[in-house]
């Protein structure tokens, strides 16, 4: 009996059976997953930079320890995701090279600078908050290793958002200057956070097929709306405002309407012209090059140990 692999694959997707590394899959499905998972991994890794900048300047030892733990989590999340991508037959070195040469993209949000301590709060609340909505959805993605990585990441991620909100909460109850700093950070991070969900559904090139293959389970616009509805409630606790005059409850839709997103800015940053694109890539290249001797030494040491053991056995 001849098996039609494509039908078998589609029937698995249909029945919510996860696709595993050695299962047959369409080449496009493999490529899409490699692209999405590696971009996701790169985002975790580059995402360490804006926060890393504040580790030495955190206002207290407690905040410093928390920030360190969060940045370490992000390194871990990057590793979970790189491992998931590697099951699709792309090597870690290839992915690293794609990141360092600028061939691969990462979330554009990390091309914005972190100017004040309040940015650590706004990044946690808004940027991680937006990421979590996407990641919760991806716990149900159809590719098994990706879904499992996401489950682990989601478990750890809620601390990130909560610590960010708490930073803002403390500032919002502080001096006049601290309140102003809090509002300023929210103003600067709000719109880029909305852009994190990607182009609107009518403009998004990858969405359709990804929905059919259940790589994505919700559209960009659905997730963005969910985020806006959530933030509108939470900002009240901070006694701050969101920088959008068009934010209004829509009784008919049962959602908040919001103002137009500046897509020109979005595409400029994607194309490499954001405030920090060059700085981020330079930092990653420097880290990779400066670390070369460590990688070489580790390999040499492992080799030497192996040889010694062989001599002992003989």
């Amino acid at each position: 009996m001849e098996i039609n692999f494509e039908n078998l694959f589609l029937s698995k997707i249909d029945k919510e059976i996860k696709i595993e590394p050695k299962d047959w899959m369409p080449e496009k499905y493999r490529q899409t997953n490699i692209r999405q998972i590696s971009q996701h991994a790169h985002s975790e890794i580059v995402g360490m930079l804006p926060e890393g900048a504040w580790i030495t300047r955190a206002p207290t030892l407690k905040r410093k320890a928390i920030l360190l733990a969060k940045v370490q989590d992000e390194a871990g999340h990057g590793l979970y995701l790189y491992s998931a991508a590697e099951t699709l037959n792309i090597s870690r070195d290839e992915m690293t090279e794609q990141l360092l040469t600028g061939k691969a993209k990462y979330s554009s949000i990390f091309n914005y600078p972190s100017l004040t301590w309040a940015d650590m709060g706004a990044i946690g609340w808004l940027v991680d908050g937006a990421a979590i909505l996407n990641q919760v959805m991806l716990c149900r993605t159809s590719y098994g290793p990706y879904a499992r990585a996401m489950v682990r990441i989601c478990k750890e991620e809620s601390f990130h958002q909560r610590q960010g909100f708490e930073i803002l909460l403390v500032l919002s109850q502080g001096t006049k200057e601290q309140k102003a700093m809090c509002q300023d950070a929210i103003n600067r991070w709000w719109w880029p956070s909305l852009m994190m969900f990607g182009p609107t559904d009518s403009e998004s090139t990858n969405s359709d097929q990804s929905m059919k293959w259940k790589i994505k389970r919700k559209t960009n616009d659905e997730l963005r709306q969910q985020f806006v509805d959530m933030a509108v409630q939470q900002i009240k606790v901070l006694n701050m405002t969101l920088p959008d005059a068009d934010l209004k409850w829509n009784e008919e839709r049962k959602h908040y309407d919001f103002g137009a997103i500046n897509w020109d800015e979005f595409w400029q940053v994607v194309k490499g012209n954001g405030p920090c694109n060059k700085e981020r890539l330079n930092a990653k290249n420097k880290a990779w090059n400066d670390g070369a001797w460590v990688r070489e030494a580790a390999v040499a040491y492992a080799e030497k140990k192996k040889k010694r053991e062989q001599i002992k056995v003989a």
Partner: peptide, 28 residues
């Protein structure tokens, strides 16, 4: 430079000899 053969989780090991990737000779 030492040659590391690259294998992936879920490969069949000796049956197919694993997947070797020529691009990553220095990878751990």
């Amino acid at each position: 430079m030492m040659l590391l053969k690259k294998y992936y989780y879920g490969d069949y090991g000796e049956i197919e000899g694993g997947v070797s990737s020529n691009k990553s000779e220095t990878e751990f």
